[in-house]
């Protein structure tokens, strides 16, 4: 995977699932930068670390994270690179895999949730 460096303070975020990438400023979370660009790929939920739909696995690169609900990312998972994209700031270019998803098993069968 090639990582092209962008303007100072902006990092490149690669989604290994789709091969797509986008630019993320150092002061924005991986998820916030994606939705601000109108892009998709990581499911977008509460943006507060509470719902877990934006869970990712960081394959390459350095990040810092804010508090994430332990209901969705355990200490052990966090230590090996799992994070919620809405709580994660890049400090280098990042390659990630999307792990979270919108839970929709019942949606189509029962019309609602």
């Amino acid at each position: 995977m090639t990582t092209e460096t962008t303007a100072t303070g902006d990092y490149r975020v690669h989604l290994i699932d789709t091969g797509e990438s986008y630019s993320c400023p150092a002061n924005r979370t991986l998820l916030n930068a994606m939705v601000a660009l109108g892009r998709q790929g990581i499911p977008s939920g509460c943006h507060g670390g509470g719902c877990g739909v934006c869970k990712v696995y960081i394959l390459q690169g350095e990040v810092t994270t804010l508090a994430m609900s332990r209901a969705h990312v355990s200490k052990e998972e966090e230590a090996i690179g799992y994070a919620l994209a809405c709580r994660t700031y890049p400090i280098s270019d990042v390659v990630l895999k999307v792990v979270g998803r919108m839970r929709k098993s019942v949606v189509y069968r029962y019309g609602f949730i």
């Binding site: 977008s44 939920g45 509460c46 509470g50 719902c51 739909v53 609900s69 209901a71 919108m102 839970r103 929709k104 949606v107 609602f112 949730i113």
Partner: peptide, 12 residues
């Protein structure tokens, strides 16, 4: 129209 985040995103 239902918004998928509205129907599937919630906390414990």
């Amino acid at each position: 129209e239902l918004n998928p985040a509205f129907t599937t995103v919630y906390t414990e």
